[in-house]
Nucleic acid binder design. Structure first.
Length: 872
DNA sequence: ATGCTGGAATAACAA
DNA sequence: TGTTGTTATTCCAGC
């Protein structure tokens, strides 16, 4: 406790910490929210022991009230610490936990759940579920920093509820409330009228009547289980559970961790923090989110943690299937719990796809488009493969007879490091058409589908049980700590992880990510995508036919060649002739137009894109015009601005990609990244693939530079695309290793410490770095087993891998970027310009959100700068 | 009746 | 501040 407690914020920040949700809990000051009530309660943070995060004095002790369903015995609920008092309210169902400084805590609860509910109202139960998710979240994503502090504002509703009053208040509660919290809240205040109408009603309904999901076991998942709400309990689940032990180590571990972790943590986490804003619900300020910094929870703990709390509270756990039964006492803050869980790497940590003999591979990639469904909709089915089948993942090199658990979650597909996608969740698909059993667990705010990897199946799994759920941007963006923007952030990747316990007690964790998957309705249908071009360069005279392969080409598609100056302004643009008669959805033949200047003395890099309408353009593809008479490209010197006036191509003749996007991005900011510098420049394939956008084409992702821009304090985690990642790992210099490793220790606290210790890390770009090493720590005692050897890092797969490729890519991109500019026309400014990071806006458009951010980020890093210099 | 889709209408945004 | 084009969400309908 102490540790973590000490500075929750810090802890939170670190992923590492993760483990203890608690920390996160810490909460922030309450800042207040204002409105509502919060006042009542002390807005304090909730600290487990009264500690405050940030050192601020703790306010009152908050308490958590939990409503139990009748089903669950009240008993189960406990008060945690001595401090807490449990109170029962109403009938069986309600139990109150008092936490110190609970209020803040409350807020959160209110928030999310309610909001969700309200907003959509009742309708979707799903929403509620979601909310559940959300609530928990403390996701790592959130920036750690923030996280810690959560401002409780919101609470008002429920928790605070008391006031909350009526309708308004109630609403909050009801609906969404996540079971956990929500439940608490509502139940807690059963007396109060709920007021609200429908939405509430429903939820309430649920509460009362059917306990949410109770049926399902979702304890863990609890909230989550099936997002849809449909609680399906599939047989599978059960089966799964049965097997669970085998399969879900991680889950268990997580759970354990959760438990073990300091009680505090739990508390914190438990507290639902996030609220979502629902529209309606909350009143104005509700959002409280407390975030616990917790998201961070470490890797593992997380799984359960968030849920965990809820569960705990509810006691679902028990029913959960035995997932974990944790004695209540564990929860209590007062007791220091042993830190059981081994910590599994946080979801945003980058992990290698192979380590030693092990290699986790995606044998069959998912289709590049999959329309995700909203909670308000029915499922849109499982992600499919291009072949019509489903994605297939296989673990090579594993010779043991013990089954493993393959984890799947939805990750980002932007230029930054891979991390859980805040706006999408994996959705478990069940039914007669599904052959693969799966089980859901929540880790932080991320739902994870656990799929058995059986030796008898050659450690191969057919992923036909995974759909993709789209969360409302408005709900997610409200989360505290959430920095990503949902709009236009519609590409995801399936991220697979497997954790293998080694004889030496360590755990080897591997991760791989799929190619990007576009999840919006429209994009998938309308945006043209160029995957391949038959010609990469040709004489400035043009006239040659070029075959483009890709998607969504139309008879009226246009191909536009453009040349831009470094500053982004168009130097030249011309529409190429398309052979309309031969256009197919996947292929298009275009005649290479003559370059504006037939006298170029050196290769000129330009871009072209396929356009199906004003806003329906493919990403830029690169193309190089060669001097008419000189087939061979001259690299060197440019005349640069040559006399030609045209552009000189300056620098490299290397291909560059035009991607608008990122290029700039690049590079890796990571400090750790530093490495990057070393990497060779682009891998061949880059060259080969002009890939346009990183995202779109499957391959692309690999290519895409890592743009890791920010150092993100927030999310430390961005991971690089796993898939791409090279096993190689690098650790970040310094920090990494230890950081985590050490932490493992027993106490989560330690972990905390570490993290705290290096708060910087958080901020620092380095985040990655941190992760890297992550040793499994074993928690101390953890049943789990991982020993923690920090040192293990080296070995440990966890090591953060930085993917070289990415790095390379980045580097290359950088270069390229630089070069491209060189094209500048006469006017063009001198080469120096090349570096310009940011490209023009337009391009950005194409890019997804992230892109926008990138520029800044890029700059951020010193590293980048250095690259810049170098390139210059 | 439920799930899975494809299409669209409508709302929310952004330029 | 109003208009217009996108994108996000919610609804519908068919299988």
């Amino acid at each position: 406790l102490p540790l973590g407690m000490g500075n929750p914020c810090l802890a939170t920040q670190y992923h590492t910490l993760q483990s203890s949700p608690v920390i996160s809990v810490s909460s922030c000051h309450q800042t207040g929210y204002s409105l509502q009530n919060d006042n009542h309660a002390a807005p304090g943070y909730y600290l487990p022991h009264g500690l405050r995060p940030n050192g601020a004095p703790a306010l009152e002790s908050p308490r958590i009230e939990i409503t139990a369903y009748s089903q669950y015995p009240e008993d189960e609920v406990e008060e945690s610490s001595s401090e807490d008092h449990t109170i029962k309210r109403g009938v069986n169902s309600i139990v109150t936990l008092t936490l110190p400084n609970a209020e803040g805590y409350r807020d959160p609860s209110c928030l999310s759940p309610a909001s969700s509910l309200s907003s959509r109202s009742c309708n979707s139960e799903a929403s509620s579920y979601e909310s559940g998710f959300y609530n928990y979240d403390n996701s790592p994503q959130n920036s750690p920093w923030q996280s810690p502090c959560v401002s409780p504002r919101g609470t008002s509703s429920l928790l605070s509820c008391p006031h909350a009053s009526g309708p308004a208040g109630s609403p909050h509660h009801s609906p969404s409330t996540s079971p956990q919290i929500g439940a608490l809240a509502e139940e807690g205040w059963p007396t109060q009228p709920r007021g609200s109408s429908g939405g509430m009603g429903k939820r309430k309904y649920s509460f009362n009547g059917a306990p949410y999901r109770q049926t399902s076991c979702s304890p863990n998942q609890s909230p989550t289980p099936s997002p849809h709400g449909s609680p399906r309990v599939s047989i599978t689940d059960e089966n799964w559970l049965a097997n669970t032990n085998q399969y879900t180590n991680s889950a268990i571990v997580a759970a354990i961790n959760a438990l073990t972790t300091d009680g505090v943590v739990d508390m914190g986490e438990g507290i639902p923090i996030k609220t979502r804003k629902t529209m309606l619900d909350h009143s104005p300020s509700m959002s409280l989110k407390v975030e616990p910094g917790g998201e961070e929870l470490g890797p593992d703990g997380e799984l359960c943690h968030e849920d965990y709390p809820s569960r705990m509270a509810l006691k679902k756990e028990n029913y959960c299937g035995g997932f974990l039964d944790v004695p209540q006492h564990l929860y209590s803050w007062s007791k220091p719990k042993p830190y059981l869980s081994p910590s599994l790497p946080a979801l945003d940590w980058q992990l290698p796809s192979c380590s030693g003999p092990y290699n986790l591979q995606i044998e069959v990639q998912p289709k590049s488009h999959h329309r995700a469904h909203y909670e308000t909709e029915g499922s849109r089915g499982a992600v499919k493969a291009l072949s019509g089948g489903h994605p297939v993942v296989q673990l090579y090199g594993y010779m043991e007879s013990e089954p493993l658990t393959l984890q799947l979650f939805i990750g980002t597909a932007d230029d930054r490091l891979l991390r859980p996608h805040a706006f999408y969740q994996v959705h478990r698909i069940t039914g007669k058409t599904v052959s693969t059993a799966s089980h859901e667990v929540m880790q932080s705010n991320t739902k994870i589908l656990e799929i058995p990897l059986l030796p008898e199946n050659n450690m191969r799994a057919i992923i036909d049980c995974a759909g993709i759920l789209k969360l409302r941007n408005s709900d997610i963006e409200l989360r505290k700590g959430e920095t990503d923007i949902g709009r236009k952030n519609t590409r995801v990747r399936l991220v697979f992880r497997v954790h293998m316990n080694q004889p030496n007690g360590r755990t080897v964790s591997l991760q791989t990510a799929s190619n990007p998957i576009e999840c919006s309705q429209r994009s998938a249908q309308e945006l043209p995508l160029v995957e391949k071009q038959s010609v990469d360069s040709y004489s400035a005279t043009g006239g040659k036919m070029m075959l483009l392969s890709g998607l969504n080409f139309l008879p009226d598609s246009k191909v536009v060649f453009v040349e831009k100056a470094q500053d982004g302004h168009h130097l030249w643009e011309t529409e190429a002739k398309v052979d309309k008669d031969s256009v197919k959805s996947s292929t298009l033949v275009v005649e290479i137009p003559p370059y504006r200047n037939q006298r170029i003395s050196s290769p000129v890099h330009v871009n072209f894109y396929v356009c199906n309408g004003k806003r329906k353009r493919s990403q830029y593809q690169r193309f190089t015009y060669l001097p008419p008479n000189v087939p061979i490209i001259k690299t060197e010197p440019n005349d640069e601005y040559d006399s030609l006036g045209t552009s000189g191509l300056p620098i490299h003749s290397k291909p560059y990609y035009s991607q608008p996007r990122l290029t700039p991005i690049l590079p890796v900011a990571d400090p750790d990244a530093c490495l990057v510098g070393g990497y060779p420049s682009c891998p061949p394939h880059h060259a080969a693939m002009p890939s346009t956008s990183p995202g779109s084409s499957p391959t692309l992702h690999d290519l895409s530079p890592v743009a890791y821009s920010k150092c993100l304090p927030n999310s430390p985690t961005h991971a690089a695309p796993p898939g791409s990642m090279v096993p190689t790992i690098q650790e970040s210099p310094g920090h990494p290793n230890f950081a985590h490793p050490a932490s493992p220790d027993h106490n989560s606290s330690l972990g905390m410490l570490h993290s705290q210790g290096s708060p910087n890390h958080l901020n620092s770009p380095g985040p990655h770095g941190y992760h890297p090493v992550y040793a499994n720590s074993s928690p101390s005692s953890s049943p789990v087993s991982h020993p923690s050897t920090p040192s293990g890092t080296a070995e440990s797969p966890f090591v953060q891998a930085y993917s070289p490729s990415q790095a390379q890519a980045a580097a290359s991109s950088v270069q390229t970027g630089g070069s491209s500019p060189s094209l500048l026309p006469e006017d063009a400014s001198p080469p120096s310009m090349a570096i310009t990071v940011k490209q023009e806006p337009q391009e950005l458009d194409q890019m997804y959100l992230d892109d926008g951010e990138l520029p800044e980020k890029m700059c951020t890093n010193a590293w980048c700068e250095s690259l810049h210099l170098i390139s210059i």
